Amino acid sequence: QAKEDFKKMMEEAKFNPRATFSEFAAKHAKDSRFKAIEKMKDREALFNEF
């Protein structure tokens, strides 16, 4: 479920497709859906799949 929420957050964010993961992470670090994925490498993997 956390992965689905994370993907939904990325869809809602409508970020620049050229944005890096660190830019995305800095902007969304306080979002509970971002925090729900415990490991940063897992967050980055989901970001890269998107």
Rank of each mutant, 00 (worst) to 15 (best):
N16Q: 15
Q1C: 15
K39P: 08
K8Y: 04
E44L: 05
K30L: 10
K41G: 13
F21T: 04
F21H: 03
M40E: 13
R43A: 12
A2T: 09
F34S: 06
F50N: 06
E11F: 08
A25V: 11
I37P: 01
R18F: 12
E49K: 09
A45E: 13
D42N: 03
A25H: 04
F24K: 02
E11G: 09
E49W: 04
A45G: 10
L46T: 06
F47Y: 08
F15C: 10
S32Q: 11
A26L: 10
F50A: 04
K8L: 12
E4K: 08
E11H: 10
A45R: 13
E38Q: 12
N16Y: 15
D31R: 00
T20Y: 01
F21P: 02
K39Q: 08
T20P: 11
K39S: 15
S22I: 07
Q1N: 12
A2R: 13
N16D: 15
D5I: 01
A19E: 15
E23D: 12
M10L: 15
E12L: 01
N48Q: 07
E38P: 14
E38V: 09
E49C: 05
K7I: 15
P17K: 13
L46M: 12
E12I: 01
A26D: 13
F47T: 04
E12C: 04
M40W: 05
N48Y: 07
A2Y: 09
R18Y: 13
N16K: 08
A19I: 15
D42M: 06
K41N: 13
F50M: 07
F47P: 04
K14W: 08
F6S: 03
M40R: 10
K41E: 15
S22G: 14
H28L: 01
N48T: 09
K39F: 10
F21C: 02
D31G: 00
D31K: 00
P17E: 14
A45V: 11
A25D: 06
M10C: 14
K39N: 13
E11N: 09
D42A: 03
K30R: 10
H28C: 11
Q1A: 09
M40I: 13
E12R: 01
Q1Y: 08
K30G: 14
E4Y: 03
K8D: 05
M10K: 01
F24C: 00
A36Q: 08
S22Q: 15
K7G: 04
E4D: 05
E11Y: 09
I37T: 03
K30D: 15
D31F: 00
K41Y: 10
E4C: 00
N48A: 10
K7S: 06
R18E: 15
K7E: 06
M10R: 01
L46K: 05
A36M: 05
M9Q: 04
E4Q: 07
K3W: 06
E12K: 02
F50D: 14
K41C: 09
P17S: 09
K3I: 15
E44M: 04
E4L: 07
E38H: 08
A36K: 09
K7T: 10
E12S: 06
K27V: 11
A13E: 14
F6T: 02
S32L: 09
R18L: 13
M40H: 11
E44K: 11
E49V: 07
N16A: 11
A36T: 05
F24Q: 03
D5N: 11
A26S: 11
E38I: 05
F34N: 00
F6M: 02
F15M: 12
A13L: 06
R43H: 00
K8E: 09
A19R: 07
A25L: 05
K27H: 10
K14Q: 13
H28W: 00
R43E: 00
D42L: 02
K39C: 13
A2D: 05
F15I: 15
D42R: 01
N48K: 11
I37Y: 03
E44R: 05
A2W: 06
P17C: 09
F24N: 06
K30Y: 06
E11T: 11
E11A: 10
F34V: 03
F6G: 01
K14L: 09
A25S: 12
A19V: 14
K8P: 01
A25P: 00
K35W: 14
Q1D: 07
K35P: 02
M40V: 05
N48C: 04
M9G: 02
A13D: 14
E44V: 10
E49S: 09
F6N: 05
L46H: 03
S32E: 13
K3S: 08
I37W: 00
A36D: 04
E44F: 02
A26I: 09
M40L: 07
M9W: 00
M10H: 05
M9N: 04
A13P: 06
T20M: 07
F15V: 13
E12P: 02
K14P: 11
E49M: 15
F34Q: 15
F50T: 00
K14R: 11
F24A: 01
D42V: 07
E12Y: 00
A45D: 15
K30S: 14
D5P: 01
E4P: 00
R43M: 02
A45H: 07
A36F: 00
R43G: 02
K3V: 12
R43D: 01
K35E: 11
E23Y: 01
A45P: 02
E23Q: 06
N16R: 07
D31C: 00
K8I: 06
K27M: 14
M10F: 09
L46S: 04
K3L: 10
A2S: 08
A45T: 14
E11K: 14
S32T: 14
F34P: 03
A36V: 02
F15Y: 14
E23L: 01
A19H: 12
A29V: 10
I37S: 02
E4A: 08
K3G: 06
F50H: 04
M10P: 03
A45Y: 05
T20L: 04
K39D: 09
D31I: 00
F47M: 04
D5Q: 08
K14D: 15
D42G: 01
T20W: 00
K3H: 09
K8T: 07
K27L: 15
E23S: 05
F24T: 01
S22T: 13
M9K: 00
E38N: 07
T20D: 12
A25E: 07
E49G: 06
K41D: 15
P17G: 10
A2E: 14
K35A: 13
D5C: 02
K41I: 15
Q1L: 06
S32Y: 09
A36E: 05
F21Q: 02
A29M: 11
K14F: 07
M9R: 00
K35G: 08
F24R: 01
K8S: 08
L46Y: 08
A13W: 13
A36S: 08
R18P: 15
K3R: 13
F6E: 01
F21A: 03
K8F: 02
S22N: 14
F24P: 02
D5S: 07
Q1V: 07
K39V: 08
K3D: 05
K41T: 15
A26Y: 08
E38C: 06
K14T: 13
K27R: 11
F47S: 05
K7V: 09
